[in-house]
Each structure stands twice: as C-alpha cells, then as structure tokens.
Design a binder for these strands. Structure first.
Lengths: 146, 146
DNA sequence: TATTAAATAAAAATAATTATCAATTAGGGG
DNA sequence: CCCCTAATTGATAATTATTTTTATTTAATA
C-alpha cells in the first residue's frame, strides 16, 4: 500500500498533517462520512484542526480525483475514498450508506451514449430502501405490539 | 386530463391558488426547476407569493407523492412532476437535466433485492456527462482556436 | 355568512458550506 | 540546517438553501 504522503505528493499537493489525517480517515472507513463526521472523528488526534480545513481539503481531493462526493439527499454531502463510480444503497430508516458493485451499469452506460446524444462520464446510482437490519427490527417491533 | 384542483383535493390538500400555480408550473415544464426557479417563474402571475410558500408547497407535494425531489449534486434540490422513478442525465457543462427511460433498471432492482439483504423502494440513477449541444459547441470552439 | 382550522407572507432562525484574512507551516534554495 | 516565500491553516464572518415562527388571511363547511 502506497503511503498517503506519497499519494498526496504525486497529486501535486503539499503534504500536511491535516490532509494526511483526512485521507487516512476516509481510507479506513466504509461509512461514507460527511464533513462534520470527519471533523469529529479527527478531533481527538487533531484537536486544532478546523472544520473549514476539512471542507477545503475535501474540495481539493475531489478536484484531484482522490475522493468522490456523494449526495444521497440529506442536507450534507458524504465522501468516499473509492473513486471509481459505483452504486450505493441508502437505508431510508437508519441512514446507512453502503457500496454496491453491478456490472450491468456499463451496459446502460454504453446504450445511453449510443442511443441518445449524451456522452456519459460517470454515473451515480442510489437505491433507496430498507436494509435487512432495519427490516428485522421492524418485524420484531410489530410483533411486540401485536 | 384531471384538473389540478381535483388532484390536490384527492390528496387531502386544501386547494389554494399558490398550490395550483406550483403544480401546474411543474406539469408544464421538462426543466426540473428548483424552488428558486419556480418562485421566479410564478412571480409575474403571482406577485404576492413568497419563496417559503414554494418550499412548503413542494414539501407537501413530495410527502404526498405528487412530485419527486431530485438532487444532482448542486446546492439546491430540483423538482419533477413525474413521480415514477426514472433516470436522469445531467450535463456537467450547461447543467441541463433530462429524463431518461431504461427498463434495465427493474432487473437490477430485483437482483439487489434477491442477492443482498436490501429491499429497494426506489432508485435514482444520474448519468453525468456532456450533452450533444455542448459537445458540438466544444468542437466548434477548439476549431476556431486552432 | 360565521366559524375554524389550515395556509399564507414576511421575517427570523438554522444548517451546510464558502470566503476572508492574519498567523503558521511546508518544502526548496542557499 | 536555516531562511524565504507561497501555500495552507484556523477562527470567524458571510453566504446560500431551507425551515420555522408568527401574525394574518383564506378555504371549506356548518
């Protein structure tokens, strides 16, 4: 695994502890956190870091293709260190966002480029619904009521 | 075509000129406007209407399934009177949002429900790229430069 | 038509994000 | 290794989109 400092340098970014912290945090989670969550998560280890720096850092990363911005319809954007376009599921009950891999999309991708006058660069598929965990919880709750 | 007043009444909404105006505006456009745009568009005919009313009206409509909220990653949400889930293309150059119909999605829908522990209620597919118009404009511009 | 609960307009509040700017720091040249 | 300079940071103000509040008005029904 390439060191984070190395990756940043290759992208032409000045290497700072804040940038390393943000990027590492994103690499080590599957949670798709938003700026606020990232900020909170880094607070213990980087107590002087400001939220504005998190935003600015994420913006740079996004521009350089180090992270992907994800908007699932909440107030705030989430971020993903997996840059390659991939679909997500969003549980509308607990808010959990999960990755998903579907080859079928490249087909659609191609079809749209051919049949419509539109050159697709990247697609974003969000599947809204209820995750297994929440479904089971719901069943249990309704069971208790009855 | 059912009258807007009738539709609102069936949904249990009190019929007001503001609500009729917003809903009709959305029915008569393919532009996927945001709240601000709707507000501006209605200003000439409804000069007393406030932006907050547009927001609240859109919120009611959304809850009742009269409109669909669409977040393509801009600052603000867009609205679509076509409620059935359907994909959209977003031109990242001119910002135009267009509807798209793809049957392939129901397959994916089903596959995810079966293979993963996730019950899909609604999916949102956004294809980012460049529309034909912008592509042609780009070619022309680079031609002039050379 | 009078009543009443709901809807409206205007303004204030809030949440997320961006801009500002002085102080600090990274990274190269000496 | 130290200095220099431009980039970055942190604190906070400003902005943007949206929501809430409140006093007033209005639609629907008795």
């Amino acid at each position: 695994m390439k060191a984070t400092a190395q990756i940043l340098k290759e992208k032409g970014l000045k290497v700072t502890p804040q940038r390393i912290a943000v990027y590492n945090m994103l690499l080590n989670t599957t949670e798709h956190p938003n700026a606020e969550t990232i900020y909170k998560a880094l607070e213990p280890t980087n107590p002087t870091m400001s939220l504005a720096t998190v935003y600015k850092t994420l913006d740079y990363f996004k521009q350089l293709g180090l992270v992907q911005e994800l908007n699932v319809g909440e107030g705030s954007s989430r971020y993903d260190a997996v840059v390659k376009c991939h679909p997500h599921t969003v549980c509308t009950q607990c808010g959990k966002v999960q990755d998903l891999y579907l080859e079928e999309l490249t087909e659609i991708h191609k079809k749209v480029a051919e049949e419509l006058d539109f050159e697709v660069r990247c697609e974003q598929l969000i599947l809204y619904g209820t995750c297994g965990e929440c479904r089971r919880k719901n069943e249990q709750d309704s069971g208790e009521e009855a």
